[in-house]
Design a protein around this nucleic acid. Structure first.
Length: 435
RNA sequence: GCGACUGUAGCUCAGUUGGUUAGAGCGCCGGUUUGUGGUACCGGAGGUCGCGGGUUCAAGCCCCGUCAGUCGCCCCA
C-alpha cells in the first residue's frame, strides 16, 4: 500500500460523474464562446519563467511562491503556467497577431500553482479563459462580461452567482487612489491586522478586501476611487455600466473589489457564489491595457477573464447519464461474431450501442443493465445460416411501436431484413442471411 | 506558509473505559430460485486498521513524527 504510487498533492483523478461534470462545463463553454465569436487559442503549458515573472509582477504571491519552476535540460529557466493571460500576450507579440486585432480568443486547460489544497483549490486546476486583444473600448468589456453571464446562464448556475463590478481607473487614477489608500492605512498602521500590515508594504489596495474584523472599520472609511477618477476613467466606467445595462446584465458595485495581479486597468469584475465556501469566486477578470506594452510588444488594450472549471463543475446540477440506445446481446456463442457485426453497423448508423465482451446471455444482460439502454437487441442462431434478432424495450415486455422498431433496423446499412409478419406485441422479430 | 479536524475492505461506514481469530451495507466473483431476464436466497474472495516510531503484558483505540484529505486564514478562478 505504502509502496504504491500516489498522485501528487492537490491533483485529481476523475471518472464517472465527476468527469461528466467537468466535461459538461467545457462543452457548454465551447458552444457559448462560438456563439459570441471567440476563436480557440492554444498556448504552451510551460513557458520561460520570465513570461510570468515580468507580467504578473515579481512581488505577487503567484510569482514569488506559487510557481512550479524548473530548469530544463538545456539550462533554461522554465515554469508551468500559473495562468493564461501572460502566455496569450506573449503569443500575441511573438506572432504579430496585432494584424488580426481586435482578436477574440478563448482557451481552456490546466494551470499550476503550488498552493495549500482545499475545496475548489488545487495545484493542478483548470480554467476557461476569454480575452479580447486590441480593443480599448468599453464595449469590449461589455462583450467579455456578457460571454461570462451567458455561460453561467447556460450552465444553469446564474441564480447562485452575483456579478460584482468595480473600476481601478487609468494609471493616473490608480496611482492617486492607491497612494491615498496607502496613506489612510499607514496612518492607522497599529490598528491593522498582521496580514494587512504586511499588505501595506506589498499591495495596499489588497487591504480593502481583507476579511479580518480588525480591518473592517478602517476599510469602511478608506478613500473611494470615485473621487480620484480622471475625466477619461470616469467616462469609461460610465460607459461600461450603460453597456451592461443594455445587455441586460445585472451587477452590483463593489467599490472594494481589486485584483492581485499588477496589470489591471479600468474594469475589474468577479462572479461570486456563496455556495462554495471560501473559494467563492467562480469567474474573474478585467482590463489589462498595460500588459502587452509592458512585455515589450506594441501598446495594446485588452480585456478578459478566467473561470475555474472545478468550481463551476461543483455548482452545476448532476449531469444526466448518457443515453444508450441499444444493448446488443448474443444469446448463443455461435452468434458472437454476428453480434460484433451488428454493433459496428448500428454505431455507424448513429446509434449509441452497448456491447460486452464475455459471458452468457444472462450475464451480458446484467452488465448492460447498468447503462440503462432503451432497446435490447438479442441475437439468435437460426437454421441454414439465418440469424434472428429480437428487438424489444430493454428488460421489459411492454408493447413496442413496431414502426419505430422497424425504422431502427432499416437504418442499419449492409443488412437485408426479413421481419416476422405475425409478431408478438412486445418485440420485433427479424432475420437476415449471415455472410 | 499558519490553525483546526479527519484517515478501518473497491465504496460508505460501525468498532464500547486499550484485552482473545477486525464487522455491516453496497459492489465484485460463484451458485440456487423466479413468470426469458431490473426478483429472492446461499456461498466466496477481499483489510499488515494511511505510513513510521514510541508507551504497555496487550494498541484500530494513547503519545510523537510523517503523508494525504477536509474546513478556515492567506492567495486566487
Amino acid at each position: 500500500m505504502s509502496k504504491a504510487p500516489q498522485k501528487p498533492r492537490g491533483t485529481q483523478d476523475m471518472i464517472g460523474e465527476a468527469a461528466a461534470r467537468f466535461d459538461h462545463v467545457i462543452e457548454t463553454f465551447n458552444r457559448v464562446r462560438k456563439l459570441h465569436g471567440f476563436g480557440r487559442v492554444e498556448v504552451p503549458v510551460f513557458e520561460a519563467t520570465a513570461v510570468f515573472a515580468r507580467s504578473l509582477g515579481e512581488t505577487t504571491d503567484v510569482v514569488s511562491k506559487e510557481m512550479y519552476e524548473f530548469t530544463d535540460r538545456g539550462g533554461d529557466a522554465m515554469c508551468l503556467r500559473p495562468e493564461f493571460t501572460a502566455g496569450i500576450a506573449r503569443a500575441y507579440i511573438e506572432n504579430g497577431w496585432q494584424q488580426h486585432a481586435p482578436l477574440k480568443l478563448a482557451a481552456w486547460g490546466p494551470l499550476f500553482r503550488y498552493e495549500r489544497p482545499q475545496k475548489g483549490r488545487f495545484r493542478q486546476f483548470h480554467q476557461l479563459d476569454a480575452e479580447i486583444l486590441g480593443a480599448g473600448e468599453p464595449a469590449a468589456d461589455v462583450e467579455v462580461i456578457a460571454l461570462g453571464q451567458h455561460l453561467l446562464d447556460e450552465l444553469g448556475v446564474a441564480g447562485d452567482v452575483v456579478v460584482t463590478l468595480n473600476s481601478m481607473g487609468d494609471p493616473a487614477t490608480r496611482a492617486a487612489w492607491s497612494a491615498a489608500v496607502a496613506a489612510h492605512f499607514a496612518a492607522h498602521r497599529g490598528d491593522l491586522s498582521e496580514d494587512s500590515q504586511r499588505r501595506l508594504e506589498a499591495n495596499p489596495l489588497r487591504i480593502l478586501d481583507s476579511k479580518d474584523a480588525r480591518d473592517q472599520a478602517l476599510v469602511a472609511d478608506a478613500p473611494q476611487i470615485d473621487a480620484y477618477f480622471t475625466a477619461e476613467a470616469g467616462a469609461f466606467f460610465e460607459s461600461l455600466q450603460k453597456g451592461l445595462q443594455a445587455s441586460g446584465i445585472a451587477w452590483t458595485r463593489n467599490a472594494r473589489l481589486v485584483r492581485g495581479l499588477d496589470y489591471y486597468r479600468h474594469s475589474v469584475f468577479e462572479f461570486v457564489t456563496q455556495s462554495l465556501g471560501a473559494q467563492g469566486t467562480v469567474l474573474g477578470g478585467g482590463r489589462y491595457d498595460g500588459l502587452i506594452g509592458h512585455m515589450g510588444g506594441p501598446d495594446t488594450p485588452a480585456v478578459g477573464w478566467a473561470a475555474g472549471i472545478e468550481r463551476l463543475a461543483m455548482l452545476v446540477a448532476e449531469p444526466e447519464l448518457p443515453v444508450v440506445d441499444v444493448a446488443v446481446i448474443p444469446e448463443h456463442p455461435s452468434v458472437e461474431l454476428e453480434a460484433v457485426r451488428l454493433v459496428g453497423a448500428l454505431r455507424r448508423a448513429g446509434f449509441s450501442v452497448f456491447s460486452s465482451f464475455k459471458g452468457n446471455a444472462k450475464r451480458r444482460f446484467e452488465v448492460a443493465k447498468k447503462v440503462s439502454p432503451v432497446w435490447q437487441l438479442s441475437v439468435l442462431p437460426g437454421s441454414q445460416g439465418l440469424v434472428w434478432v429480437d428487438l424489444k424495450r430493454f428488460g421489459s415486455s411492454v408493447e413496442i411501436d413496431r414502426l419505430v422498431a422497424e425504422r431502427i433496423l432499416q437504418s442499419v446499412p449492409g443488412f437485408r431484413w426479413q421481419t416476422d409478419l405475425d409478431p408478438p406485441a412486445h418485440k420485433l422479430r427479424a432475420s437476415y442471411q449471415s455472410i
